[in-house]
Write a protein that binds this DNA or RNA. Sequence first.
DNA 1: CGCGATTTGTGCACGTCTTCACAAGCGCCT
DNA 2: AGGCGCTTGTGAAGACGTGCACAAATCGCG
Lengths: 230, 230
Amino acid sequence: MARLPEYLRALHNLAETGHETVSSEGLANAAGVNSAKLRKDLSQLGSYGTRGVGYDVGLLIDQIEYVLGLTQRRAVALVGVGNLGHALAGYDGFASRGFRIAALFDADQERVGEEINGLVVQHIDELPRVAAEESIAIGVIATPATAAQRVADQLVAVGVTSILNFAPCVLSVPEGVDVRKVDLAIELQILSFHEHRKASLTALPAAGGSALTALPGGLAVTESQEAIGT
Amino acid sequence: MARLPEYLRALHNLAETGHETVSSEGLANAAGVNSAKLRKDLSQLGSYGTRGVGYDVGLLIDQIEYVLGLTQRRAVALVGVGNLGHALAGYDGFASRGFRIAALFDADQERVGEEINGLVVQHIDELPRVAAEESIAIGVIATPATAAQRVADQLVAVGVTSILNFAPCVLSVPEGVDVRKVDLAIELQILSFHEHRKASLTALPAAGGSALTALPGGLAVTESQEAIGT
DNA sequence: CGCGATTTGTGCACGTCTTCACAAGCGCCT
DNA sequence: AGGCGCTTGTGAAGACGTGCACAAATCGCG
């Protein structure tokens, strides 16, 4: 499930604050989900909480980390060292949560050779050589949209089977390769949509405006989708 | 719907390449979704495509932009000018897609006064004054997790009703305030999960491993969730 | 003017996800 | 040792999203 990482983060928080066990209710609150949903998710894991007590925090962390495949520190290749790529390369949240940025690439010779956070930016053509030296399973694309598909193809060619794409475009990849997309502008647009909806509702509580304002009733949006990641 | 922004991006692409009309099939491909799904989404909009021809690209763009509330250029306040905040402040994808970064804030006096992309970083205590001068509807939080909740409270206090949260923590906000969360590490962990699953499947096609490896059948993950944002 | 090719809009069925509610189990206290 | 309160795990019902398949509508061409 896509919620497991959120549980994991909440569990780490709890562990740091000295909790040894958590109830499903407590963990659900910390992760921002329903307690029944959490219990069902955890039961699918085969994880055993003890009734009347709750879940063992440390044990649960181990289990979730195992299922997520975080027992091995996965090597990540980051392509595109522009504005966003720079930030990603320097983001310590990756290192602290089971990932290691193994190499930085860019197509711009201007940027090749630059050192970021102890890593030297290499030219994208070096990708096959680097991939041969250490197994890279995950690629992060932080290039402009025009370059993204080409980079994706190159990543796939050297055996990368999971891609995190920050470029605003859809990637076509062969079957078996997973792509997740994060588009910052889209996130804002979704918020803007909610803003617009809220404004319409307060301005004209029941009156039908123009044909465009109407939103024929089908567009009722899910209430309070608070704190849901991707 | 959360897919509207994706359609919009695809439509802009099509418009730039000279297309006047699109079939649902064509647009669906460009946006990476099923054509039936796209038609259903668009019909909810009340948008009229013409049968036998397709959709008018320009008209559809206008309609979607209206529904998303992009006819007005919304002012965004960005709080936290660290590694990620820097990148966000410099990201031109915001400006080009209907948003204007109106102000930058940070709690660190060290960073106050710094100029990024033509904007001067102000201290977070200035937030009420700035918010009084121009209406800010959307706030972006790019602070460490420890500061995120406090910042969120401050944003809500000055009337912000939509928050985009990059900090790895859940925010509690009053009803009527929308929060969207983007956690970069979680995205990677989800990919790692798929990697782990793929590796387990190829390594032991039918053999049951340890109790932990078992994944009692219920954990079948959605196949090919390619190119889905958020 | 009529016909065929094409494409939208949608009814229907299916599978998934979510939530409630409750039985089963565990520990603690007396 | 027994009972009581608390918590997990899960069955069932309902909401929701998805995709197929087809009728209705429109355009172009002869």
